[in-house]
Design a protein around this nucleic acid. Sequence first.
DNA 1: GTTGTGACGGGTC
DNA 2: CGACCCGCCACAA
Length: 106
Amino acid sequence: MTHMTFSEQVYVLCRKIPRGRVTTYKILAEKLGIKGYQAIGQALRCNPYASDVPCHRVIASNGSIGGFKGKREGKEIDEKVRLLKGESVLVIQGEVDLHQYLYSFS
DNA sequence: GTTGTGACGGGTC
DNA sequence: CGACCCGCCACAA
């Protein structure tokens, strides 16, 4: 765990997100001690570990779904929502209730 | 809710 | 190496 690249650190954190919960890009950035919030998304964009890293559990800090696979709208987003619903995370009008599902690595 | 600006790491040139 | 552009964002106006 000493010399991991930025992206790898992102993956490690994402994997810690419990099923049925979500976190935000901001929180991940804070945990990594950086302020390049977009960098988080950039790292997930590649997401070589789709099977291990549930990047769909990472949403924007305002509760909106954010993006998925490089897309900010379209079928990709629809799939992200579907994955969340599959984990009992309700998505109302493209937004998640953070007060209910947010996981901040307590 | 929308729009603009800020911030910063990664990748590319 | 150094400078440049881009991005699944955040925040203020």
